[in-house]
Write a protein that binds this DNA or RNA. Structure first.
Lengths: 202, 202
DNA sequence: CGCGGTTTGGACTTGAGGGTCCAAAACCGA
DNA sequence: TCGGTTTTGGACCCTCAAGTCCAAACCGCG
């Protein structure tokens, strides 16, 4: 089972080719033949590099795609330490998803392998990393006094994650970013405005 | 093609049976045989009542389920005219989805028929009705002076829709309602706190 | 050059599942 | 009761796609 350099290159080519295929035109159901065609490989190669078949292959692609999701939000996501950075981040997120349109390769993938146990892990891990970046950003803002100290950073980060996800979901069925923008604006403004449930006697 | 009373009853039994089956244990892929088993019908009945086959059947089930989504949030969703109503609504939503757990019959359905054109319509229609209820609620709150008049009701309603969707999505992969609660709290508190981007010179 | 391995091509098998069809049963109005 | 219509059962067909397998090509190495 030791792959040579050539072997590893082929494996990678399969993953990237499959990812590209998924990103191109909405492919209701992906078949191994589609992937074969998109990557100019043979059936035996697919099973050679992914012995557990389609499941394993799609999971690898999902992993690959999920890394891109966060990478695409950099460098802003990594240093949300000023209101300007937050605005930039918002811009990048909206731009990215507007460009992507109703197609979401990751969602499509997860949909196809939702039955296998590993799929949930990929999603969960992505969400966790995403949320962690946001949490750090909020903490940084608190340290520099731009966000009120009583804000629960983790919970607010969770709200951002949920909001973004929801915006993207809605985008998938409506095709426009109105909801995504609305929820991001609401949450950022909420963050600016001093956090949850200010005591009445403030 | 005119169904008698008995026929209509059978058709309905199929829809409800299929919905029940989808709601029960996570059924990766639904097959007509699954539905047959779950509803004690024969193949010919399925095609008799849904001439376009699986597609049409699942779409009908999706429609049925999507009506339930809103019905489950009543009566609160229909009269969000006090902070108390909003809190009750929040409670009901969270309770419903907590009970549902990571399974989302509607999402599962849409996933299966995402290729057929009608599927997007079912989702879009559901989201539109949902948002409209929220919008009315916000307007009512503005009329009674509980929400600042400069809040954009439609946009804020959109933020709620996106947030809720996202919370549910995250719930699907983590299994708990932390994110859903966080985003709902953030948005409600945002609403209470005076809305988006208050002019600096207020 | 020959010998181990890895890599590749592609024909073949297999099974699942959607959809068709016909005939039997039940139903209903006259 | 009778004839037409609706409803139901279930055997059958047919396609599509995952997975298997074997042999050929390739590649490095002594």
């Amino acid at each position: 089972m030791a792959f040579t350099a050539k072997g590893r290159a082929t494996r990678q080519r399969i993953i990237e080719g499959a990812a590209g295929y998924l990103r191109s035109d909405d492919p209701g159901n992906v078949t191994l033949d589609d992937i074969r065609a998109a990557t100019s490989t043979s059936k035996s190669q697919l099973f050679h590099y992914f012995p557990n078949g389609k499941e394993e292959l799609l999971l690898a692609v999902a992993q690959y795609e999920s890394d891109r999701v966060l990478a695409d939000q950099q460098p802003f996501l990594g240093s949300l330490d000023s209101w300007d950075a937050w605005e930039q981040w918002r811009r990048v997120v909206i731009g990215r998803y507007r460009a992507q349109g109703p197609r979401c390769p990751l969602a499509a993938l997860i949909g196809q392998v939702s039955t296998v146990p590993g799929a949930a892990d990929v999603t969960a891990s992505l969400l966790r990393r995403w949320q962690e970046h946001l949490r750090r950003g909020i903490l940084a803002m608190q340290e520099s006094g731009e966000v009120a100290p009583h804000v629960d950073a983790d919970r607010t980060a969770a709200a951002f994650v949920a909001g973004t996800q929801g915006g993207v979901i809605v985008l998938r069925s409506t095709g426009d970013t109105f909801h995504l923008e609305a929820v991001l604006d609401a949450l950022i403004s909420h963050l600016r405005g001093g956090g949850p449930a200010r005591p009445a006697a403030e």
